[in-house]
Structures are given as structure tokens and as C-alpha cells.
Amino acid sequence: MAADPLIRVTGLRKAFAGHVVLADVRLEVRAGEAVALLGANGAGKTTLLRILATLTRPSRGTAFVLGHDCARAPERVRPHIGLVAHGAYVYEDLTALENLRFWTALSGLAADGAVLARALAAVELERFAGERVRTFSAGMKRRLSLARFVLSRPRVLLLDEPFAGLDQRAKKWLEGYLEAFKAAGGALVMATHSFGRELALADRIVILAARTIALDTPRASMGAEEIARLYRLHTEDGA
């Protein structure tokens, strides 16, 4: 029997001031699985991620992460998730080490200098520990953002356009990091427009169109051209 999914979404609906963004969304993501969430602008990808991240409440339906209701028990969900959105969630006038120290203290994690240094080394930022984040590239900020998760060890990573704005080296590093996360039993949900590295990482392709999941299919069975064709089919017909 397959293990319980880490993410289970059923009958999810979200409306903003009467405007329905998501309707009857159903989704399950299991341990060690990566889902690429595709969709046109305004399809509700970010809204779905924010609901899973406990930042937005659904209008109807339920979203569970590791068995905890995202709307009713967000404080139980939060220790298990890591959100990487457009912002890197770092303070520009603090150093990398100071940022990490702040977030671990705020999260109630016990982490001494050696542990923080190891977390920075895990994201290849140990040489920049004492430098202000203001001087960092987008890729370095993304890595620093991920260093928090080296310490908090979430089971679920929610990523919004994870490879956007990164150079080739940073993309390669992030790809390796996410592969390792997945191999360690983590679940990934990546909202994206691009048909690049996110799709290579994904085990399943989920296309959001016409406010709901128009397609949910295994990635292995399809090439990039087939995915692009299906994307056009659903987003142009259904959006």
C-alpha cells in the first residue's frame, strides 16, 4: 500500500472579492515526488502555493500537509514546509550569518555558530558568511534562503518560479539541491511558466487552467514537445 501523501488537496476553491481563482482543485503529492505546476498568468498557481504555505485561506475545500489542515492548524503545518517565493526572505543590511542566526532564533531552533556555518557551507556560502546580503547576486540570495531549510529540515518545499533570474551555475546548483531534497523523501511543488529545469526535475506535470487542474500526468511518459503541446492545448482552450 502506498504511503499517505504529504500534500492532499480536495475540493479547493478560492475567490477574491467574488472573483473565483481556483475551483474544485484536487491534488496529492507523495514523499519523494516533485510536481511542476504549470499555468498561464492568473491561473492560480501562486494562490495554490500560498494556500499550501498557510498564507492564504481557501474559500472552500481543504488542504492538508502531513495530515495537518493548512487553514485550521497553520502552526502545525509551518514546521514542515519551506516556501521559496519571488523574494528571498533575507535582510539586505545583515550579513549571511546574521540572517541565518535571526531566522533560526525566530523559528526557535537551537543552532550555535558551528551549526550555522555548516548550513552556510551546505549552500556553498561559507566564504561569504560575513558579507552583507546587499552585495549578493540573486542566486546567492536564493541559496541563503534555502540555507534556512538545511536547519529546519522541512518535508515539503513550495517553490514559485525557483529558477527565474538565476545564472546557469546557480541553476545547476539549485537543481542538484532539489534533486537531493527529493531523494531524501521530500515533496516538491514548483509553480512555473518555463519548460526548463523545473520539468526535468518533475515527476508529474500539473496544468492549471480554467480555475482548476486541467491535466495531471506523469512526467516520464512525455517529452518537452509533448508537454508544450498539452500546455498550449489546455491554457489556450481552457483559460
Binding site: R78, G87, Y89, Y91
Partner: peptide
């Protein structure tokens, strides 16, 4: 302002633990 300018508002929300400490 710091949280707004550095896009850290959501991260404050997501931090597990007692928000009154913030």
C-alpha cells in the same frame, strides 16, 4: 518597513512559534 522592503513579511508569518515574541 524593513520587513516590507526586504519582502520578509511572509517569512515572519511562516516562522513557527509564538508570534507575540515578534
Amino acid at each position: 518597513v524593513l520587513e516590507r522592503e526586504n519582502d520578509c513579511w511572509d517569512a515572519l508569518l511562516l516562522a513557527p512559534g509564538d508570534k507575540s515574541a515578534i
